[in-house]
């Protein structure tokens, strides 16, 4: 591949971080020309948390039957919280199992009663890679989501939900993502589960790069 000056910079930055060198996707920035950067960062339907005015955005692509996503989730939440200036975007990308689609639909449906994060956290805290729909329903219900309203909301907003899932899928494909989790941290694409220390490191690197531009 021909390496542009911009890419060379990234490769250099990553070179300083031998620890991370193998997890930051080949030193590539994810925001290439053909990619709908705005849609990825600012889809009006995609749930968000953290600081909406933060100076760094993390976009998380995950699946509710993805064990690595579940392992990294508490650390990610922790770093976002302690940092205070990170905006976190949730991209439900159900690709691993059939039940994952259902999980994404009930989580996104809970948004209409203001409980996306509650449902999301409930689903992320069920361990394992082969949870079925019943297990997911139970987890969401136990977390306090109004199930009758959820069902009605999902039916009423079926198009919006499936539209969002389609967009997320298209965005993931346009970046060539191969599986979950993937975290877009500033300019970096990290296709791996990180722990808190590594999240912090990449966040710091991403800020440095933003400042350097």
């Amino acid at each position: 591949m021909i390496i542009s000056r911009r890419d060379a910079l990234v490769v250099g930055a990553v070179g300083l971080l031998p620890l991370l060198a193998n997890i930051i996707g080949a030193g590539q920035t994810w925001a290439a020309q053909e990619i709908d950067t705005k849609g990825i960062l600012h889809d009006p339907d995609a749930p968000e948390s953290g600081n909406p005015k933060g100076n760094l955005t993390i976009v998380s692509f995950f699946d509710y039957n993805c064990p690595f996503c579940k392992r990294a989730e508490p650390d990610l939440e922790k770093v976002v919280k302690e940092d205070g200036k990170i905006r976190l975007v949730y991209k439900d990308w159900p690709i691993l199992t059939e039940a994952s689609v259902y999980g994404a639909q009930i989580a996104l449906g809970a948004k209409y009663q203001g409980k996306y994060l509650i449902a999301h956290n409930a689903l992320m805290s069920v361990p394992g890679s082969k949870n079925d729909k019943a297990t997911m329903t139970k987890a969401v219900q136990a977390a306090g989501v109004d199930m009758e309203r959820l069902e009605a909301d999902i039916h009423a907003n079926a198009d919006a939900i499936s539209g969002l899932l389609h967009r997320t899928h298209a965005q993931a494909e346009s970046m060539g993502l191969m599986g979950t989790p993937v975290y877009l941290i500033g300019q970096f694409k990290v296709a791996a589960a990180l722990d808190a220390a590594k999240f912090r490191e990449v966040v710091a690197q991403a800020r440095q790069r933003q400042a350097g531009r």
Binding site: P94, I95, T97, E98, V101, Y102, Q105, K133, I154, A158, D159, I161, S162, L165, H166, H169, A172, E173, S174, G176, L177, M178
Partner: peptide, 20 residues
């Protein structure tokens, strides 16, 4: 992955190969 009728609107086409 044939989604059952409950909320069947979305049929994922899985990225089994690179996009291009």
């Amino acid at each position: 992955t044939a989604v059952e009728p409950a909320f069947a609107a979305w049929k994922p086409s899985l990225p089994s190969e690179p996009v291009a």
